[in-house]
Design a protein around this nucleic acid. Structure first.
Length: 638
RNA sequence: GCCCACAUAGCUCAGUCGGUAGAGCGCAUCCUUGGUAAGGAUGAGGUCACCAGUUCAAAUCUGGUUGUGGGCUCCA
C-alpha cells in the first residue's frame, strides 16, 4: 500500500497511509495540536487541513494563533458574514469579494435594492452566531470553469461569474458551508464553529475592482479574533487610539481649526498651533542650511503660460486654482518647482556650480476631491519643506544618499518608525530608458546602503521619474506619505536647463524633487498622534506655566515669568484666583511640560518649584537654573 | 468626485408621536487666599449648519447646498 511521506519543519519525516490529511498529521502529533490548527502549508502553499496529501511533501501546520492562522480565520469569517447576509436578504444581494485585512476583514456586496446600515449589524451578527454555532463543515470542491460559471449564473451571482471568466485556471475551487457556496482559493477553517469572536464595524462604498468607472458596491467592514478576549482588547485599543486623534487633540489643545465659511481643507492655525509650526520651520531651515541647501522663495501665483510650459496645465489643471487679473491668467501654485527652475535659468550655470540645492518652505494649494479631505492629514492648502536638487548625472547617487540620510536623521529625532517604498517606471511615462535605468539604480543603491528594509512597487512611479516614498502611521495605523524623493526628467527638459561641462559643451542637469517632513500640516497631524499631544520640550508651544499659590506671591511670580520669557522660554503666567490644584489640572490637560509652582517658600528663597507633566516634582531651583535646565533638555534643538 | 452616516450652546451630548429647546463641562460676576489633576453661589450663552418645500404648526418630515466622519478612487 502506498504511503505519504511527510517532512515536518523540524526536519523529521513521518509516514502516513494514502489519503491522509494535514489534520491527520496534527492528530498524530497530539490531539491538543489538532484542536489549534486551522490550515497547513504544504510544499510552500497554504491549503486546507482536510486536503488529502500525496507522495512526498513538506508540511507546516498553521496554528490559529499565528498571523497566518488569524488571516485564515478572518477569511472564513468573511464567508460567514456573506452567508449570513445571503440568509437574511437572499436574492436582493449578490456577493463579490471578501478578503482578510490587517484589522479584520470586509465583504463587498452588490445590492441596488438594499442599503446596509449600522442598525442591521446586530441582526447580521446574530445570524452569523447561529451559523457558527451550527458548526457547519466548510468543504472545498473543485469544478471546471464552465461548470462553475453555470453554477454561479444559475444562482444569480453575476459578479462571481465575472471573476471566474477572468481567471486563467481550468479548474476553480469553491467552498461550501451549509447552503452557502462561494468561489474562493482558500484555505479555510475546517468548520464554522471555530469562529467565535467577531464584530461588524462599518459600511462604506467601494468600486467594483477598485475602478471608479465601475459600479459602487457596499463594503461591510468587520473584524474577528480567536476569542472574545482578544476582540475586546482590540476594541479597547481602538478607543484609546481615538483619544490620540489629531482632530480631537487639535481642538482640545487649541492648535488649529477649520471653518465652514472659510472653506473645506483650509487650516486656521491658532496661536499654539502656529507656534508649533514655526518651531518646526525654524528647525527645518537650520537643518537645510547645515546640509548645503540655499533658502529661496517664489511667488504664490505665476502666469498660466508658465504652467503650460511646465506641463502642469496639461496634467494637473483639475487640481489647480486659477485667477484672472487685467486679462492676464494666473495659476495659484500647486507645487514649488517653477520658481526654482527660473532661479536656475536666471544665469548661465557651470558644472562647477552644481549641485544646486534650492530649499523653500513653499505654501501650495491643490483642489483635492472633497471626499478625501481628512483633518490635517489631507488638506487643500499646505506648506511643503520642498527642495529641488539640480546636479550632474555623476552626482545623482551621492545626492540621493544625502537626502535619504537626511530623512533618517529627522525621523530619528522625532522617534518615528516608517516604511519605505520605491516605485519604478509606469507604463505611461516619458524619458529615455537610460535615464530611468540610472535614476532607478541610484534610488535603489541609496536604499540598499541605508540598510533599511523597503518594498518595490513596480510601475508605480510618477510619469516623469522613479521615486522613494516614506510613510508614517497615524493613531489608527493608517499610513500617510510624508517624505518623498523623486527623480524628474521632464522639467529640466521642458525648461531647457543646461550647464556647461568641463568639456565646454552644454549638458542637461538631473533634477531631484524631495520633501523631508512632506507637508508641515500632515506632519503635524501625525506628530500630534505620535506624541498623543505631549510634545517634547523643544517643540512644545508652551514649555512652562508659572503658577502662584495665593495672591501673596503674584508680584514675585510675575518677575519670574518676565525673567524666563526674557531668557527665551515659552512661558505663561497663571495668576488667576484659583486653587493650585485647579491650575495644575488645567495645565496638565493642556499637556504643558513644566508647571512652575510659586508659594511663600519659593518667594522667600528666590526659587520656583517645577512639576513635570508626568507628575514628577523637581527640587526647587532659581529661575536661572531652570533656564539652564530647559536649554539642556532641548539639547541641540533649542 | 462616488457610497453610507451625521450636523442642537464654545466643547461633549439629551431632546419620545411635528406643538418654536435641555444637561454636564467651559464662560461671566460675586464669595473664597486655598501647596501639586476640579472650592462655593449666581448668571449669561442657541434663527437647532444654510436655502427651499410640505403643514395650522418643523430641531423633528421632504428636496437642495455647505461642512464633518468612515470608506472607495486619487494623493504630500
Amino acid at each position: 500500500m502506498s504511503q505519504v511521506r511527510v517532512q515536518l519543519p523540524d526536519g523529521s519525516i513521518r509516514e502516513y497511509p494514502e489519503g491522509s490529511t494535514s489534520l491527520d498529521v496534527a492528530r498524530s502529533i497530539s490531539e491538543g495540536l489538532a484542536r489549534q490548527v486551522v490550515a497547513a502549508r504544504v510544499d510552500g502553499s497554504l491549503t486546507d487541513l482536510v486536503a488529502p496529501l500525496q507522495g512526498e511533501v513538506a508540511v507546516e501546520l498553521i496554528l490559529l494563533k499565528s498571523p497566518e492562522g488569524l488571516e485564515v480565520l478572518r477569511h472564513s469569517a468573511a464567508h460567514l458574514m456573506a452567508h449570513a447576509v445571503k440568509e437574511i436578504y437572499g436574492g436582493k444581494v449578490q456577493v463579490t469579494i471578501g478578503p482578510a485585512i490587517d484589522t479584520g476583514f470586509y465583504y463587498d456586496f452588490y445590492a441596488p435594492d438594499h442599503v446596509f446600515t449600522p442598525e442591521e449589524f446586530e441582526a447580521i451578527e446574530a445570524k452569523m452566531g447561529q451559523l457558527a454555532s451550527a458548526n457547519l463543515p466548510i468543504c472545498r470542491e473543485e469544478l471546471s470553469r464552465d461548470e462553475a460559471i453555470d453554477l454561479f449564473r444559475s444562482m444569480g451571482e453575476l459578479y462571481k461569474v465575472q471573476l471566474i471568466e477572468d481567471l486563467p485556471n481550468e479548474m476553480v475551487s469553491l467552498y461550501r458551508q451549509g447552503d452557502f457556496v462561494d468561489l474562493c482559493r482558500g484555505p479555510h477553517l475546517p468548520a464554522t464553529g471555530m469562529i467565535k469572536a467577531f464584530k461588524l464595524t462599518s459600511v462604506a462604498g467601494a468600486y467594483w475592482r477598485g475602478d471608479e468607472k465601475n459600479a459602487m458596491l457596499q463594503r461591510v467592514y468587520a473584524t474577528a479574533f480567536v476569542d472574545k478576549k482578544e476582540l475586546r482588547s482590540y476594541l479597547t485599543r481602538l478607543e484609546e487610539a481615538k483619544k490620540r486623534d489629531h482632530r480631537k487633540l487639535g481642538r482640545e489643545l487649541d492648535l488649529f481649526s477649520f471653518n465652514d465659511e472659510a472653506g473645506a481643507g483650509l487650516v486656521i492655525w491658532h496661536p499654539k498651533g502656529a507656534m508649533l509650526r514655526t518651531l518646526l520651520e525654524d528647525f527645518e531651515r537650520r537643518e537645510h542650511l547645515r546640509r548645503g541647501y540655499d533658502i529661496v522663495q517664489g511667488p504664490q501665483i505665476l502666469r498660466t503660460d508658465l504652467w503650460k510650459t511646465s506641463g502642469h496645465y496639461e496634467n494637473y489643471r483639475e487640481n489647480m486654482y486659477f485667477t484672472e487679473v487685467d486679462e492676464q491668467s494666473y495659476g495659484l501654485k500647486p507645487m514649488n518647482c517653477l520658481s526654482h527652475m527660473l532661479i536656475y535659468k536666471s544665469r548661465k550655470r557651470s558644472y562647477r556650480d552644481l549641485p544646486l540645492r534650492f530649499f523653500e518652505l513653499g505654501t501650495v494649494h491643490r483642489h483635492e476631491k472633497s471626499g478625501v479631505l481628512h483633518g490635517l492629514l489631507r488638506v487643500r492648502g499646505f506648506t511643503q519643506d520642498d527642495a529641488h536638487i539640480l546636479c550632474t548625472p555623476e552626482q545623482l547617487d551621492a545626492e540621493i544618499k544625502g537626502v535619504l540620510r537626511f530623512v533618517q536623521d529627522v525621523m530619528g529625532i522625532f522617534g518615528f518608525e516608517y516604511e519605505m517604498e520605491i516605485s519604478t517606471r509606469p507604463e505611461k511615462s516619458i524619458g529615455s530608458d537610460v535615464d530611468w535605468e540610472s535614476a532607478t539604480t541610484a534610488l535603489m543603491n541609496a536604499l540598499k546602503d541605508s540598510g533599511l528594509p523597503f518594498e518595490v512597487n513596480e510601475g508605480d512611479g510618477a510619469f516623469y521619474g522613479p521615486k522613494i516614498d516614506i510613510k508614517l502611521k497615524d493613531a489608527l495605523d493608517r499610513r500617510w506619505q510624508c517624505a518623498t524623493i523623486q527623480c524628474d526628467f521632464t522639467l529640466p527638459e521642458r525648461f531647457d536647463l543646461t550647464y556647461v561641462g568641463s568639456d565646454g559643451e552644454k549638458h542637461r542637469p538631473v533634477m531631484v524633487h524631495r520633501v523631508i517632513l512632506g507637508a508641515i500640516e500632515r506632519f503635524i497631524g501625525v506628530l500630534i498622534e505620535h506624541y498623543a499631544g505631549s510634545f517634547p520640550l523643544w517643540i512644545s508651544p508652551v514649555q512652562a506655566v508659572v503658577l502662584n499659590v495665593t495672591d501673596n506671591q503674584a508680584e514675585y511670580a510675575e518677575g519670574v515669568f518676565q525673567a524666563l520669557r526674557d531668557a527665551g522660554i515659552r512661558v505663561r503666567l497663571d495668576l488667576r484666583n484659583e486653587k493650585l490644584g485647579f491650575k495644575i489640572r488645567e495645565a496638565q490637560m493642556e499637556k504643558i511640560p513644566y508647571m512652575l509652582v510659586i508659594g511663600d517658600k519659593e518667594m522667600a528663597d528666590g526659587t520656583l518649584a517645577p512639576r513635570h507633566r508626568s507628575g514628577e516634582n523637581l527640587e526647587p531651583m532659581s529661575p536661572e537654573a531652570f533656564v539652564r535646565f530647559v536649554t539642556d533638555e532641548c539639547g541641540q534643538f533649542h
